[in-house]
Amino acid sequence: MLAQQLLNGLVTGSTYALFALGFTLVFGVLHVLNLAHGAIFMAGAFAGLYAVTAAELPLYLAFLIAMLSGGLVSVAVDWLALRPLRQRGSSEFAAIISSLGIAQVLMSAGQAISQTQIMRFPFGTFPVVIYEFWGVRISLLQAAILGLSLLLAFTLLLFLFRTDFGRRVRAVAISERTSSLLGIRPNIVYFQTFFISGALAGAAGVIIGLAFNSVHFLMGEPFLLKAFVVIVLGGLGSIGGALIGGVMLGLIQTIAVSYLSSSLSDAIIYSLLFCILLIRPTGLFGKLHIETRVVRS
């Protein structure tokens, strides 16, 4: 029984991690909380869904389309809402407001397209197969969610730490000025960062849409709120931290829901977030150093 719940928690947690990957990537590179990430995720899920229902494409193609659309929407979000502020050197406050603004526009578009309906992937889009090991049941979909989350997280890590592209991204994350003196063009790096972040959100959109069998215009909001917990647990801007934070959140939530109550589980999770912020604002594993207080050093 406990093993089954831990497994379910692990799967839920990996959906959280998947969502948070792109969110934390943008924060790590630009030091901006992109509150439109939930809306980008929704746009990816819509694209994937319509690829299956309207264009009748196979799921793997729909998945790629969702990633591509997520990436493009994300780049558009940056272009319209965040780039003008960067050029002016505005505060983090301005970025939060403008990403909230564009999120509302995207959500309104989603509302108009879906006519406020909850949409579902047709039955059998993903084969319903259930395996059983030592009394623990796991569906093919759950296994795929786990596998994909790990795969995408590790690809991203490889990308960032083993390629030239990753070196450039990390250089810009440390200092935009210095890296542009070294011949790196920050604008291209930002473009790539937003594309990757959006593509990850699009992938998360399809996977989560399948897992919960529902796609609708407000689907990003709860995940965005959970993503705050994930990235605070793991440390803002840390990719590995997002993975661990997501899984931890999933496990805590599943255990809270099954042993306490489902409405109290949110109170527990957000109180946890609150406490961690106060005790360790850089996260449980975060190394990223940010000025967090006006206390002298």
Partner: peptide
Amino acid sequence: WPLARLRGVFQAIATLAFVQIVISIGLY
């Protein structure tokens, strides 16, 4: 009391958490 020690985005996230805590207590 606790929040005046935090800055910027951390204040924003912590107060968002407060809003969520209030909602879930209201539901519970």
